[in-house]
C-alpha cells in the first residue's frame, strides 16, 4: 500500500475492549468493513496487494494494539494465558514461557526477522487464518483454546474447531480475539519446532511442524501436532495423533507414521514450493519428531 492509499482509511483508537466490541457491532450491522490493527504486518501486505482505491471501499482501522486487555502473558497453575496482542518478541522474552513452553520462543525466533517479531502478534496470526501461519502451528500443537468476545458475550473454542476453510473461521464479523489459553506441558515434556522455509530469515514456511509430547512408561500420554502450509488450514494431523496417542513409543513404526501423515496432508504447488516436495518433507518431519522423541 502506498502512503496516499493509506490516507483513504479512517483510523480510530478505542480506549477499551468494550468500545471496540461496540464499534464492531455497529459497523457489522450496517455491513461496513472494519479491520482491527494489531501489528499491521499482515494487513499492510494485504492492502499492498489489493489497495483500496477510494474512500468508500476502504475499511475503517481500529487500533487494538495498545489495549491492556489484549496484552500480556500470565500463568495460573498449569494454565497459561496469552493475550491476542502479544508479540513474538514478548513470547521470546517471557521467563515462564521459556521454561515451560519453549516451543513458543523457538517458533517466534523463526518468524520474519526481529522487526516483524516486534510488531506481529499471535492474534493477528490466527485472525488471518492462513495455513502458513507459524504461530497457529504452535497453538495447534498446544491444543490451545481461543477466546472471543463481542457485544453478545464471550465464547471459548478449541483451536481445532476454529477453522472452516482456507482463510475462513468461525469468528463472526463483530468478534474480537482476546487471547489464548494453553495447558502447559509437564516437566520433561518434549517440544519440537522445525520450520522449513525458503531461507533462514524473512521466510514463509514451505512446511513447518510444531509438536508436543509427554511420555510415561514408554507410552505417549499427551500428543499435539500442528503442521503449517500443507493443507487449506493449519493441519492438526489427526491420523498421526490417533496412531500414536496412548501407544508404546517403540511400537510406532515409521511406515505407519508415513502413511498416517500422507493421509493428513494435502499440499499444493505454489510459488514457494511443490506439493510433492511438501509431502516428502511432511513425512520427514513427522519421522524426525518421533525419532527424536524415542531417542530421549
Amino acid at each position: 500500500m502506498s502512503l496516499p492509499e493509506l490516507s483513504l482509511h479512517g483510523l480510530e483508537r478505542p480506549d477499551s475492549l468494550g468500545s471496540v466490541c461496540e464499534r464492531l457491532a455497529e459497523r457489522a450491522a450496517r455491513g461496513e468493513k472494519t479491520v482491527l490493527l494489531a501489528g499491521g504486518t499482515d494487513w499492510f501486505v494485504e492492502r499492498h496487494v489489493a489497495p483500496a482505491t477510494d474512500g468508500s471501499e476502504a475499511e475503517l482501522v481500529l487500533d487494538v494494539s495498545r489495549l491492556p486487555e489484549l496484552r500480556g502473558i500470565s500463568a495460573s497453575g498449569d494454565t497459561l494465558w496469552i493475550g491476542a496482542a502479544t508479540t513474538y518478541l514478548e513470547l521470546r522474552r517471557h521467563p515462564v514461557v521459556a521454561a515451560r513452553v519453549p516451543l513458543l520462543p523457538a517458533m517466534s525466533k523463526d518468524v520474519g526477522a526481529v522487526q516483524i517479531q516486534a510488531r506481529g502478534t499471535l492474534g493477528g496470526n490466527l485472525a488471518t487464518a492462513s495455513p502458513a501461519a507459524d504461530g497457529v502451528g504452535a497453538l495447534a500443537a498446544l491444543d490451545a483454546t481461543v477466546h472471543l468476545l463481542s457485544v453478545r458475550g464471550p465464547r471459548s473454542i478449541a483451536i481445532s474447531d476454529y477453522f472452516t476453510g482456507y482463510k475462513r473461521s468461525v469468528r463472526a464479523a463483530d468478534e474480537v480475539i482476546t487471547g489464548f489459553t494453553v495447558q502447559m506441558p509437564g516437566e520433561g515434556s518434549f517440544q519440537y519446532w522445525r520450520k522449513v522455509g525458503t531461507r533462514l530469515a524473512q521466510a514463509i514456511s514451505k512446511v513447518a511442524l510444531a509438536g508436543v509430547a509427554e511420555v510415561s512408561d514408554g507410552q505417549v500420554t499427551r500428543l499435539g501436532l500442528g503442521m503449517v502450509s500443507v493443507a487449506p488450514t493449519t493441519a492438526f494431523l489427526p491420523t498421526v495423533r490417533a496412531l500414536a496417542l496412548r501407544r508404546p513409543l517403540d511400537r510406532i513404526a515409521d511406515s505407519a507414521l508415513d502413511a498416517a501423515t500422507q493421509a493428513d496432508v494435502s499440499p499444493i504447488d505454489d510459488v514457494r514450493s511443490t506439493g510433492d516436495y511438501r509431502r516428502h518433507v511432511s513425512g520427514a518431519l513427522v519421522r524426525e519428531f518421533f525419532r527424536t522423541l524415542r531417542s530421549r
Binding site: 501486505v45 521466510a203 514463509i204
Partner: peptide, 27 residues
C-alpha cells in the same frame, strides 16, 4: 540455492521480495 523466477504464460508470479528469494545475512 535460492533465486528463481516463477513464470506463467510470460508473467512473473513472484515479483516481490517476499517470494523472489535472495539470501539474507543469516543465509
Amino acid at each position: 540455492l535460492h533465486e528463481q523466477i516463477v513464470w506463467k504464460d510470460g508473467a512473473i508470479l513472484n515479483g516481490r521480495m517476499t517470494n523472489y528469494i535472495v539470501p539474507t545475512s543469516l543465509d
